[in-house]
């Protein structure tokens, strides 16, 4: 167990190393002079030179990489080219709305998708199954932002039930906080629901075909018991792992959803920095999200121990 943990932790290091190299090389391998790209079309030669000196782009590439990695390992993500503030500080300021949105989305999606997937598998081949599958294909096909605008159009503009846009911290009241998160959560969770429901369905279907399910039925326990005691527990592992893999989907969705609903989170920060070509900030956000993806999937690997006693590391 201890050896497994150490091994699994060590396996994340090369992945994060590759991520760091890619993020580092993106700017350096871009066609043309990176300093000129970041400075924008209207920049004077002096401004370009200033950016080059600031980012150390005038030094040999290996020196640049080593000093960048060194600072990174000390928690220094650099500073924004535009506002001059430390990237870590900008990220911390923007993290609350993103965390709130991600949490409500994951909770909502799991609560909706898992029962849907189980129902579809239980009533395999009936209209319930076909409806769930149809909704799930549809969920994969509608662009996140189109869904967001449809919801704004329906619930905020036509029915006037909910606020159109914006974010209020939970410290200013639970309802103002929640009411502004309902539409973004619905928007973002659709694709996640589609993914989880599909995986749950196929996982439960597979388990229901196993011999031990037939045995359980043969010894005469009720169908509810078969489902709860024997099928669901054994079907859990693929579902949990897809929740982890889906974090990548969620992160992409966050960037778009925050733009549609004007939430001042990390997604907005990313889009704003892209439009302003503020590369140190883009770089910081990419590193953060990639690390998050790696850590979540590590945690999920470990959680199998809880869900499936057959797995022993």
């Amino acid at each position: 167990m201890g050896r497994f943990l150490a091994g699994r932790l060590a396996a994340t290091l090369p992945v994060m190393g590759v991520v760091a190299v890619i993020v580092f090389l993106l700017l350096r391998l871009a066609p043309g002079d990176p300093a000129a790209i970041l400075a924008g079309d209207a920049a004077s030669p002096d401004q370009i030179a200033a950016i080059r000196a600031r980012l150390g782009l005038d030094q040999p590439i290996l020196t640049q990489f080593l000093s960048w990695i060194g600072r990174l390992l000390h928690g220094d993500l650099g500073a924004s080219i535009i506002s001059n503030q430390p990237v870590a500080k900008l990220i911390l300021e923007r993290i609350e709305p993103t965390l709130a949105l991600a949490t409500t989305t994951i909770v909502f999606a799991v609560l909706v998708a898992v029962p849907l997937g189980v129902l579809a598998a239980w009533w395999h081949g009936t209209w319930v199954d076909r409806a769930v599958m149809a909704v799930s294909v549809l969920g994969f096909s509608v662009p996140v932002f189109v869904l967001g605008y449809l919801l704004i159009f329906g619930f905020a503009m036509q029915l006037r039930l909910l606020p159109v846009q914006g974010y209020v911290s939970i410290t200013e009241g639970v309802w103002p906080f929640l009411s502004r998160l309902i539409l973004p959560t619905l928007t973002l969770s659709v694709i996640y629901i589609a993914l989880i429901a599909r995986t749950t369905r196929s996982s439960v279907l597979e388990v229901l075909g196993e011999d031990y399910i037939r045995t359980a039925r043969a010894k005469g326990i009720g169908e509810t018991q078969v489902l709860w005691r024997h099928a669901l527990r054994n079907a859990a592992v693929p579902v949990i792992s897809v929740i982890g893999l889906g974090i990548a989907l969620l992160i992409s969705g966050v960037v778009v959803t925050e733009s549609v609903f004007n939430l001042p989170g990390l997604g907005r920060l990313t889009v704003d920095s892209v439009l302003a070509r503020d590369y140190p900030v883009i770089q910081g956000v990419i590193l953060l999200f990639s690390a998050l993806y790696v850590v979540v999937n590590l945690a999920i690997d470990l959680s199998y121990l809880l869900f499936d006693p057959r797995i022993r590391y």
């Binding site: 090369p14 992945v15 590759v18 066609p31 992409s252 778009v256 990419i286 999200f289």
Partner: peptide
């Protein structure tokens, strides 16, 4: 495969955004 894992760990929209921003 480690390089492939690294690319997969980066959210694809962010990677694409960064590439388009830098390459025009």
């Amino acid at each position: 495969m480690r390089i492939m894992d690294g690319i997969m760990a980066i959210p694809s929209i962010l990677l694409a955004i960064a590439m388009v921003t830098l390459s025009g």
